[in-house]
């Protein structure tokens, strides 16, 4: 028995056979919990191969750019939703937060004539504040997150409609349009922004104590609290991140369209949750993957793109997306059942 003084060379059990010893010192590359990424990755590759054989222009630069643009908003929202769901929550108000934040941005710029940077700060602050309200209601008042965020969806969107009515804000400054339509090294700015957010989020999720604690809070909040983790702070924090990223996604969307309308962004919620779940994040908390969410967002974008390329009506996108989600979750469930023994 050598309980308190572990030997320097301990750990023979999981020594890698094929890699140098230092590889064993790396944290798990894809995150602290085992998420079956093989399902969305397989579906994505299969679909891409089928499309490559069916339509020669699928892998053209223009088409890949269109797919990436399509996936970028869901990636941004998906990162926040992955954090919330991993911490055993859910946020149904993201569309409303996105809209309210961008209405605040547009109002600051157009109606109040404030400088651009102030409008950005107000927009991000609005998103974070909405997330904070959600977090407070869920944690301190111990209300079900489903009910809270369903209600705040109505409140936040209602506030946006009260201010803006049916008006459309448009004609934003060139810098704003650059965020939505500009390119850097021929890569669209929304793609760059979303990939940067995904990379930073993955690093925090997999290699930082924040990620470990977020998984613990979702997996077993009682155990996490007993080990000194501030469960309330982490849960509120996940909603604040969600709100902040909703505002960022709102800026990107507004910049792409060069317009804001208070009744918009109603379909983003389901697509975001679908991308997160297809990516292997467990709906009831404790198991999450930013890489999975990235794959899920791309999978949904490729499905939409395929429907258009194959000449179907746009409405078929919903049918195809639903079928692909079912197949992926089916694969995922079988894999999860094996993991759970």
């Amino acid at each position: 028995m050598r309980a308190n003084n572990p030997p320097e060379t301990a750990g023979a059990v999981d020594t890698h056979r094929f890699f140098p010893a230092w590889v064993a010192d790396l944290p798990p590359l894809l995150g602290p919990t085992k998420v079956p990424l093989i399902a969305p990755a397989t579906m994505l590759v299969l679909l891409a191969v089928v499309m490559a054989f069916t339509r020669g222009d699928f892998f053209s630069t223009g088409n890949l750019r269109a797919i990436a643009l399509d996936a970028s908003i869901i990636m941004l929202l998906g990162v926040g939703m992955t954090a919330v769901i991993t911490a055993r929550g859910i946020d149904l108000s993201i569309g409303a937060i996105l809209i309210l934040s961008t209405v605040v941005f547009a109002a600051a710029l157009k109606d109040f004539g404030l400088p651009l940077w102030v409008a950005f700060v107000l927009c991000l602050a609005t998103g974070a504040a909405c997330g904070y309200v959600n977090g407070l209601l869920v944690t301190y008042l111990k209300m079900p997150d489903f009910i809270v965020t369903l209600s705040t969806e109505l409140v936040f969107r209602g506030l946006a409609l009260v201010y803006a009515g049916g008006a459309v804000f448009f004609g934003f400054p060139d810098f704003v349009k650059f965020i939505g339509r500009g390119r850097f090294l021929d890569i669209p700015m929304p793609v760059i922004i979303s990939v940067v957010v995904v990379v930073v989020a993955h690093i925090l999720f997999a290699y930082h104590r924040i990620g470990i604690r977020l998984h613990a809070v979702g997996g077993n909040p009682v155990a996490a609290a007993r080990q000194g983790v501030n469960v309330v702070r982490y849960r509120i924090g996940s909603y604040v991140i969600m709100g902040l990223l909703s505002a960022v996604a709102g800026i990107v969307l507004m910049a792409r369209l060069d317009a804001v309308v208070a009744s918009g962004a109603v379909t983003l919620l389901l697509n975001t949750i679908a991308a997160v779940i297809v990516g292997g994040t467990y709906l009831f908390g404790g198991r999450g993957s930013i890489v999975g969410t990235f794959l899920g967002a791309w999978l949904l974008a490729v499905v939409s793109n395929a429907v258009v390329l194959l000449g179907f009506e746009a409405f078929w996108q919903h049918v195809a997306a639903g079928v692909v989600i079912l197949i992926t979750i089916g694969l995922y469930s079988r894999r999860t059942a094996r993991l759970d023994g």
Binding site: K34, H215, G219, A224, G286, R287
Partner: peptide, 8 residues
């Protein structure tokens, strides 16, 4: 209950 987080 051991207070373990099963997925970690």
């Amino acid at each position: 209950d051991l207070s373990l987080v099963d997925d970690l």
